[in-house]
Amino acid sequence: MRMHLTGAVAAFLLLAGIGAAAAEDVVITPEQDTVVHEYVKKQPLASMKVPGVELNIGSSLPDTVELHEVPNVKYRYVVIDNRTVLVDPGTRKIVKVYD
């Protein structure tokens, strides 16, 4: 019985850790998404290439990539390979890729 209880506690702690990690996921509200879409249309940027960087959520952009502000949104944007990329300026990690 004790082995089953220990296993159950371990499983619970593992799932709790996964839940905590999921809580740190970036959530972009529909309002922020609308602000980004409208702003990017009004302030288009030239597309650039960033060799060695895959456009995936969580990928980091090098310091050489200039990030541009979006009013009232904490994230910044850049256009890479003709795709608008939303980036956390503190970590430089991609939080959303628009097609």
Rank of each mutant, 00 (worst) to 15 (best):
V27S: 10
V65W: 03
V85I: 14
D63T: 13
Y77V: 02
A11F: 12
L13P: 03
V50L: 06
L14E: 12
D88A: 08
G90R: 13
V79G: 01
G52L: 06
R76A: 05
V27M: 09
V36K: 00
V50R: 02
A16T: 12
D88P: 01
A23H: 11
V53L: 06
Y77F: 15
V53W: 02
T64F: 08
Y77N: 00
A10R: 15
A11L: 15
Y39F: 15
V26L: 07
A20W: 09
V26H: 03
A22R: 13
N82T: 09
V40M: 11
V26E: 04
G17V: 03
Y39K: 02
D88M: 03
A11W: 08
P89A: 10
T34C: 06
I57E: 13
A11Q: 11
E38S: 12
D25S: 12
E54F: 10
Y75D: 02
A23V: 11
P62Y: 08
A22Y: 09
K41C: 05
V9Y: 08
P62L: 08
L86M: 15
S60I: 08
D33N: 12
I18P: 02
S60A: 15
G19T: 07
D33V: 01
P30R: 06
Y39A: 01
D33P: 02
E24Q: 13
K42P: 01
L67R: 00
K49T: 11
I18R: 10
V73A: 04
P51C: 05
N56K: 15
D33Q: 13
V70T: 04
T64P: 03
S59N: 14
A11P: 02
T91G: 05
K42M: 11
G19Q: 08
A46G: 14
A23C: 08
V36Q: 00
P30T: 06
T29L: 08
L45T: 06
G52F: 06
L67A: 04
V40K: 02
L61H: 01
V27E: 10
V36T: 03
R83A: 12
K42W: 03
T34Q: 13
T64V: 12
T29M: 07
D88T: 04
L86K: 00
H68I: 00
V53F: 04
G90W: 03
V35A: 09
A11E: 12
V73W: 00
R83I: 04
L45E: 07
S60W: 06
P89M: 09
P89N: 11
G19F: 05
G90H: 10
D81W: 05
L55I: 08
E66G: 05
P71A: 07
M48W: 07
V50M: 05
T91F: 04
P62S: 10
L13R: 14
I28G: 01
Q43E: 11
V40H: 01
V79C: 12
I18C: 14
I57C: 07
V40Y: 00
P44L: 07
L61P: 02
Y75A: 04
V35I: 15
L86N: 01
Q32D: 13
T64N: 12
E24F: 09
Q32C: 03
